[in-house]
Amino acid sequence: MSSGEEIPDFTVEEAPFDDEAPVALHAGGVVITGISGNLGRTLAKLLHKSERVIGIDRRPMRGKPKDLEVHLIDIRRKKVEDVFRRGHVRALIHMGIMHDPRLPAREHHTFNVLGTHLVLDYCARYHVPKVVVLSSASVYGPHPDNDNFLTEDSPLMAASRFAEVRDLIEVDMYAQQFMWRHPEVETVVLRPVHIVGPDIKNAPANYLRLAHPWTLAGFDPMVQLIHQEDACRAMQAALKPGVRGVFNVVGPGEVPLSAVLRELNRSSIPMPHPIARGLLHKLWQYHLVSFPAPELDYLQFLCTVDGSRARKDLEFKPAFTLRETIRSVLPSG
């Protein structure tokens, strides 16, 4: 990490920094990892009006505006360093984290954990003043004895019942470790609740698109959802100078799962919980469903968080109402 020899190189490249001029802030670009994903494209669309956006993704970006610079590189590649070495990076938004339970654990583990290590370390080496890491409120995990509103200090227990998500926790933990090790970098870790939206294809959004979603008979936990555009606004808010720390990001409020399914006119199938897990596991093994059995915990227990810190320090307020957020998974919008 001691990269003293890089500094002169950097100072030569960087234009004389003037704290007084607001333009200087905009002189640097914002690097976004995972820009070609559905959420990444939403974020790029939001930021590229006001910022110089530099994307990194191994997948090509659909509908890329001409003036947007996107590097088609796997974040584990050494070539990523060039993006930072060239200078003029004022912030990194690291959302290049994948969660595909079908992939072998080794693949997503190295991509998530190793990738995060590498890009954060480039930020320290090349004096990027701001790092925003997109984690998730799921790192706390759904548990019967959870507080109704988990604060940022709550332990990250998700892997205790669902081992496959441990790399997501490691990413979050590494970002926190980085925050303490590099006080000169303003590091922000965002833990948004389930992100949904017309373009989002994560597990919660896919679940809400099922015509006959399973529920667990007799269980109806409160859930929190956030619209994809609100989640991106939170990331934008995190770029504000002076902001650092870990923040839960909550959408327009809490609502029983049953009310969400009613709003979407779903006819849910209540399954007795003692048999649901085994059955879903079998279906998963035969590739008949895309939901691994431990995700049933989200239909049974609370994993809801307190978003007051982000409301206060990031001045983040969701723009979409509860009803709009829920209905955003519907095709016509």
Binding site: N148, F149, M222, E254, V255, P256, A259, E263, T321, L322
Partner: peptide, 12 residues
């Protein structure tokens, strides 16, 4: 209570 008739803790 919100438009679904519950308070943040789920009291209806």
């Amino acid at each position: 209570q919100n438009e679904y008739g519950v308070d943040p803790f789920g009291f209806d």
